[in-house]
Nucleic acid binder design. Structure first.
Length: 552
RNA sequence: GCGCGGGUAGCUCAGUGGUAGAGCAGUUGGCUUUUAACCAAUUGGUCGAGGGUUCGACCCCCUCCCCGCGUACCA
């Protein structure tokens, strides 16, 4: 009785059906071997029936959740090298993706990390349930469902239709699943479900499964590349008292033990520079960055960067480093140099174009901001280009023109250097022309993929720049951060000439996996918390309060 | 923030101001070489939430929630 009307069906909707089953039960003894008492197809009922199946297995002496598997083989290698495996007894394990019972035979496909392989099950071969081995017999196959995780031991052979299969002698349940998989043919299509339950998407869609694995390999490739060049990896704090290294809006948090408000990192570069001061010449971190700003197809509030610092080098060293790193990843992780992004083919093979920002703009618009000497001149030029935003300086005007016209034309990997010093407070000015910074940005497929510069290591200069910026920031309603005097102090102890790169991991992953949406390279994208009605019912949660308007 | 599109069974999707549909999955029975197996029977719905108009609303109107796309903001 408890099984049918207990906590699981506490929702009011099932009251009537519960009563009905009570009547059934008082009329005749329960028949736990059939699930006809309440064979409805709501999720709640499907779930209940599957829990019952687990209970029934338990009664037969078979655990639905054993702790260990005897798996010693994988689908992929068996399929790839059939001859080497033919006739050998193996134990494969995985999730049941399909199940076809046909009288005294049954066929199932199970999926492991490497692929899908067919289990061929014969009544005579499988035999009866043997609790001592935790082996499920032919009659008890009905207690298994698509989605369950099982292991099968048997000989590698081919079915009559020629499909490589395992002729199962021993079938064990490893994990009973109590929710159904999505439609086995269509998979998961609803975008919201895909994002909230990416695990279902990766179960159903091998391409999606592979994609996330290749993002992980890419990150491993970055480490391999940098380690081979003498970089050492450090951890830097995510919770920071000052959020330096940029002008982004931070997330605020509170540290109870210190009774202090702190911030989630918007950047890690000030810490990497302290490491350079500390005497490590080549350092990097692969860290999390948090920016309390907009979300769109290429921005996510929580993202990753690989950030490096190399001492005794300037930005030109980094131009080579970045180019080599992308080529290394393309070739060694993805096995090719060409990638399709937004109908364009990006080629990492040839040497990258290196071009000054002023030259990009003059190529595209015919306007040479480098030749201008007054702000009025620059402002007039902007107007002529139909850009009606206010520029505070010639440099700002150049950046506006670049963002409007230049950026999107940079399809092939391009290093744009010579950014205006006004927008480069942490970079050194070019010795040849102090209006521009020793800085470059990476553009691929019209998207900014990283920012790099020769680090300003003159502590007096930097403090002055920061003070100016802070004033501007104050007027801008406190967006700019407080000065990090601890960092200035470290700099006053002397940081050798240093240069750093900071390509965004997700944007690299988007290019290498040919995705146009950042959510398709982030396994757990940020979502508003939500609970479906059916889950609220199942879990006994009252979501009416959550559904009420909650505007501030 | 604004604009547009979407939310119907566990999944994939139709649908119309007048009794909510299909396929898959589920349940029951049959079938000893299947491949989205097949055959037969069958269950399953607060149509995202709340309010309004109407004799009658899944459909029309309003508010809200969630998602997507576009746009804006943003090292």
């Amino acid at each position: 009785m408890q099984d049918f009307c207990g906590a699981l069906s506490s929702g009011t909707g099932s009251l009537e059906t519960c009563r009905a089953s009570h009547r059934l039960y008082s009329a005749r003894p329960p028949r736990p071997t059939h699930f006809m008492t309440q064979a409805h197809s709501t999720l709640e009922e499907i779930r209940r029936i599957r829990i019952e199946k687990a209970t029934e297995l338990q009664k037969l002496g078979i655990s639905a959740y054993p702790s260990k598997s005897a798996r010693d083989a994988y689908a992929g290698p068996i399929l790839a090298e059939y001859e080497a495996h033919e006739g050998k007894t193996v134990t494969v394990g995985g999730r049941i993706m399909s199940f076809r019972k046909q009288g005294g035979m049954a066929f199932a496909h199970i999926q492991d990390q490497t692929g899908k392989i067919q289990l061929l099950i014969r009544r005579e071969t499988l035999g009866e349930t043997r609790p001592a081995d935790a082996a499920i017999g032919f009659t008890e196959l009905r207690l298994l469902d698509v989605g369950d995780i099982v292991e099968g031991t048997g000989k590698v052979m081919k079915s009559m239709r020629g499909e490589i299969s395992i002729e199962v002698v021993t079938l064990r349940l490893l994990t009973k699943t109590i929710r159904p998989l999505p439609d086995q043919w269509h998979g998961l299509k609803d975008r919201e479900s895909i994002l909230r339950k990416r695990y279902l998407d990766t179960i159903m869609d091998p391409e999606s499964h592979r994609r996330y694995a290749s993002v992980a390999k890419m990150i491993a490739g970055i480490r391999e590349f940098l380690n081979a060049r003498g970089f050492i990896e450090f951890q830097t704090p995510i919770i920071q008292a000052q959020y330096g290294g940029g002008t982004a809006k931070p997330f605020r948090t509170h540290v109870n033990a210190l009774s202090t408000d702190m911030y989630l990192a918007i950047s890690h570069e000030l810490y990497l520079k302290r490491l350079i001061v500390a005497g490590y010449d080549k350092v990097y971190t692969i860290g999390r960055y948090f920016r309390n700003e907009g979300i769109d197809r290429s921005h996510h509030p929580e993202f990753s960067m690989v950030e490096t610092m190399a001492a005794y080098e300037n930005y030109e060293y980094n131009m080579d480093l970045v180019e080599e790193m992308f080529r290394h990843l393309a070739v060694n992780v993805f096995g090719r140099t060409e990638f399709k992004v937004k109908d364009q083919t990006i080629d990492f093979g040839p040497a990258w174009r290196r071009v000054r920002m002023v030259d990009v703009v003059s190529e595209v618009t015919g306007v040479d901001f480098g030749a201008m000497t007054t702000l009025d001149e620059a402002q007039a030029a902007l107007k002529k280009l139909d850009v009606h935003e206010h520029a505070e300086s010639i440099g700002h005007a150049l950046v506006l023109a670049f963002e409007h016209f230049g950026e999107k034309t940079l399809i092939q990997p391009t290093l744009v250097y010579g950014q205006p010093v006004e927008i480069s407070p942490l970079a050194k000015p070019l010795e040849s022309d102090p209006r521009w910074a020793e800085r470059f940005e990476i553009y691929i497929a019209g998207m900014e993929c990283g920012d790099n510069w020769s680090e300003q290591n003159d502590p007096v200069q930097l403090l002055e720049t920061w003070r100016k910026a802070y004033k501007v920031g104050e007027e801008d309603s406190g967006v700019f951060h407080a000065l990090d005097f601890d960092f200035i102090e470290a700099l006053e102890h002397g940081m050798p000439p240093t240069t750093g790169i900071g390509p965004g991991i997700e944007r690299m992953a988007m290019i290498f996996t040919e995705q146009e949406n950042i959510d398709d390279v982030i396994f757990f994208p940020m979502m508003r918390p939500a609970m479906s009605n059916v889950n609220a019912e199942i879990f006994g949660v009252d979501i009416s309060a959550a559904k009420a308007p909650q505007k501030e």
